[in-house]
Amino acid sequence: MMDLISQITVSGLMFWFLAAVTIVGGLGVALSQNILYSGFCLMITLIGVAGLYLFLGADFVGAVQLIVYIGGILVVILFSVLLTKRIGVDKTTSSWMNRGVSVLGCLALLGMLLFSVTKATWRVTETVSTPTTARIGDGLLREYLFPFELISVVLLMSLVGAMVLARRAAKDNSGQQQDSIERLQ
């Protein structure tokens, strides 16, 4: 009995810890004045979310979250920070007025969400966690085959689009460089 209780407690503590990590990270993203710190806070949040996934038995999604989100997307975001901005020079948040209105709006939203979440009755079927990777792989090639192909096309198109945007910028830049060289001469 003691054993059982302690187990539950451990898993509960684990959840609260992960939830805290996630939310504190999120607050860091929202409130930090330095954009680079925001980025690192985002990483903490993402790790917390990955932990929640694992806690929910979604091993594959958690692993993808770690690899793709933190390994890929976050790095891209930090890149864009470092490529565009001298760190900590510009003021990164908006006026008091704006923030006040935002806080009010967001609190209203939060209240509404919490109200509906707690009020609703969830028909929960407690499931035993089984490894999901094989099932997801199977599903992606059967009932989700079309969305899967579609999302591949979307990803491809957006990457090509990103490349085109960046390329045009690069060309402009080289033109500018040439201009400046000509001006120097």
């Binding site: 704006n98 935002s102 709006g105 509404m112 509906s116």
Partner: peptide, 16 residues
């Protein structure tokens, strides 16, 4: 930011 407001407020109103 204002556009984001619009979205948020719109959602709240819609749900209400």
């Amino acid at each position: 930011n204002n556009y984001a407001y619009g979205i948020a407020i719109g959602t709240v109103v819609l749900v209400l």
